[in-house]
């Protein structure tokens, strides 16, 4: 079985910032949330995947092939949506469609595109200069999904959009993933959406990949408790992932397996995990 993404010892230096070395494997047919703070290295990773940047060390394989050996034909298998459309503003939707028809040739699917455009209710003769940010992202997504790509990369694509549009995007990603050969890799620092649909969460902090795990395992692994200082003292230090002390006690995220089973723990969200882990790192 071929993996969608394989990173081996990937390393990239940009001034003072160092990304990696990152080892990461994304199996086919799943949605991966690639999360981390702003500046953690999410966009750099995606640019490396897309060959917009070149790694200092390591290997990148997409759909089983080294990205250095990608031909234009093979690149049609990869789709991508950024936080902006990156197309000339004076183009209209019709222009953009013609452009992609010529660009992707046989692989271009007029019907898929038309359906998505209708679903999003995008105007076809207005130049994209007049599109809202949400409309630009929707157009980007429609373009990305209309050439039969097997791997979809989203880089902060839905950040800053309203909840209704983000919710639509989730539906579309879930539709896309109905084909088990399709894979989605989403980078984001907004997590509530991802929580619903992601199969795996990969967490990057200051250029280092802290973990990549199935979301279900992750959510079961940790719990949150509100404790007094005394109760905190009694706990195994190893069990504490991060804490938020306040005037009336302390809130902690704990590893469930390292605390007594009768301990009352609340469920965590991915956002909790991210916040507490980063706070835990700071101390």
């Amino acid at each position: 079985m071929q993996n969608a993404i394989e990173l081996r010892g990937l390393k990239k230096r940009l001034g003072n910032f160092v990304l990696g070395p990152i080892d990461l494997t994304v199996p086919r047919g799943c949605i991966v949330g690639y999360i981390g703070e702003n500046g953690a290295g999410k966009s750099t990773t995606i640019k490396l995947l897309l060959h917009l940047m070149f790694p200092d060390e390591g290997e990148i394989r997409l759909l089983g092939k080294d990205v250095q050996e990608f031909t234009p034909q093979m690149k049609k298998d990869i789709a991508y949506v950024f936080d902006d459309l990156y197309l000339p503003e004076d183009m209209t939707l019709n222009n953009v469609q013609n452009f992609h028809r010529k660009l992707y040739g046989q692989a271009w699917q007029d019907k898929t595109f038309a359906d998505l455009v209708a679903r999003f209710n995008l105007p076809d003769s207005k130049s994209i200069k007049h599109f809202s940010r949400g409309m630009k992202m929707q157009l980007g997504l429609a373009l990305a999904l209309s050439h039969g790509a097997r791997l979809l990369l989203l880089d902060e694509a839905t950040s800053g959009l309203d909840p209704v549009i983000r919710d639509d995007v989730l539906d579309i990603l879930l539709d896309y993933i109905q084909n088990e050969n399709h894979t989605v890799f989403v980078s984001s620092h907004i997590l509530s959406d991802l929580e619903k649909v992601a199969d795996y969460i990969a967490f990057i902090h200051k250029g280092q990949l802290l973990f990549m795990e199935t979301k279900d395992d992750l959510m079961n692994q940790y719990g949150i408790a509100s404790l007094s200082e005394e109760q905190l003292e009694e706990l195994d230090d190893m069990a504490i992932v991060g804490k938020r002390p306040h005037q009336f006690g302390v809130e902690v995220m704990l590893k469930r397996e390292l605390v007594p089973s009768d301990f009352e723990l609340e469920k965590v969200s991915i956002e909790d995990i991210m916040v507490y882990m980063i706070k835990g790192k700071r101390k």
Partner: peptide, 10 residues
């Protein structure tokens, strides 16, 4: 636009 067309089939 380079950022868009480089990852594309070009």
């Amino acid at each position: 636009v380079d950022q868009y067309i480089i990852p594309g089939p070009n």
